[in-house]
């Protein structure tokens, strides 16, 4: 059994003149929930659709569960399931009847009682027992989302792609879905979790791929993402925060902003921070506390996808004034 459940390499897709995906790689391993992040229009959903055979990539290759997958010619392999966008069903049928049809599409050989048992299990797992007998026309968006989840579970997923799976669910239901994703991963499945909720991704995912404008701008572990962040935030308390802030504005690669509750939030890489602390001492400003903050995934995400380059901003602010001493940091 392949350790890698999903391997999409160099996937490109254009819709007319607009490039939705450019050489995108996405690798998801069994036993992990892999976050797929990006601003609206970044290409996350297009990538998921390509993996599910709904969109034909212009280039690249996709392997699902260790086997090559041709989105044009092949059916989605057994064990691969997905829920992209708000799932839609036949409104004139009940939720259960919709699932029966999908189960029949999946397993042509299964007898009726086995199909019914699979459907019942999926309904129970997705928390739809009370509403499964009602026509889908009367379902709320949240109920459709649960039904979509049940439809995905019918395929006993080894690779499950979920796009905004909790966006229409109440907090309790959203937690159930997150628990389900965790459980599936613990059982050896790979789950690709696309979401705008950074706290959710942070809670669930050990690895993330961030796409922006159709390109992958980061792929790796969440810890690695934190390490790779261009600047690490620190909480700083000094004997003279105002002077310290003025000093920071003259140091390349250092940005200091007033922190809520006093002190400063300082963003800098390790070398710049060291130089800044030494400069504080030279300038007679005592350092009373300096501690590294744990950055939220959201702040990292915003930093990675923001159009403004923080280093450039710092470099501009570091031009020494004529009447100020040069601290030897701007070389």
């Amino acid at each position: 059994m392949a350790r890698t459940a999903l391997e999409a390499l160099g996937v490109s897709k254009s819709f007319g003149p607009r490039a939705a995906l450019r050489d995108v790689d996405l690798v998801a391993r069994r036993g992990e929930v892999h976050g797929l992040l990006g601003p609206n229009g970044a290409g996350k959903t297009t990538l998921m659709r390509a993996v599910l055979g709904l969109v034909r990539p212009d280039g690249g290759r996709i392997h699902l569960l260790g086997r090559p997958f041709d989105p044009v010619a092949d059916a989605v392999p057994d064990g691969v399931a997905g829920m992209v966008d708000t799932p839609a069903f036949y409104p004139y049928l009940t939720g259960r009847a919709n699932l029966m049809l999908l189960a029949r599409l999946d397993a042509a050989d299964a007898d009726a009682s086995a199909t019914r048992a699979r459907v019942d299990a999926a309904i129970e797992e997705s928390g739809l027992v009370a509403d499964a007998g009602a026509r889908v026309a009367g379902y709320s968006t949240g109920m459709r989302q649960r039904l979509g989840l049940a439809a995905a579970l019918l395929r006993s997923p080894e690779l499950l792609l979920l796009d905004e799976a909790t966006s229409s669910l109440d907090p309790a239901a959203a937690r159930e879905v997150r628990d389900l994703a965790r459980r599936l991963a613990a059982d050896g499945a790979a789950v690709v979790w696309s979401s705008h909720d950074m706290a959710e991704v942070e809670e669930l995912c050990a690895a993330v791929t961030i796409v922006d404008c159709g390109r992958v701008i980061f792929s790796g572990g969440v810890d690695e993402l934190r390490e790779r962040a261009p600047s690490l935030p620190h909480a700083l308390r000094t004997s003279d925060d105002r002077a310290a802030r003025a000093l920071a504005s003259r140091c390349i690669g250092v940005r200091a902003t007033p922190a809520v509750g006093g002190g400063l939030d300082v963003s800098a890489d390790a070398a710049a921070l060291d130089a800044f602390v030494i400069a504080l001492g030279r300038y007679g400003i005592a350092v009373r506390a300096l501690e590294r903050r744990t950055r939220s995934l959201e702040s990292l995400f915003l930093e990675l996808t923001a159009p403004v380059d923080l280093d450039v901003a710092c470099a501009i602010g570091a031009e020494p004034a004529d009447d100020e001493p040069d601290w030897g940091l701007a070389s």
Partner: peptide, 17 residues
């Protein structure tokens, strides 16, 4: 009209089928 292509085609049946 129902938006069900996604559900239908992401199953174990090829488009030709």
């Amino acid at each position: 009209r129902y938006g069900t292509w996604t559900m239908m085609l992401a199953r174990s049946r090829a488009r030709s089928e």
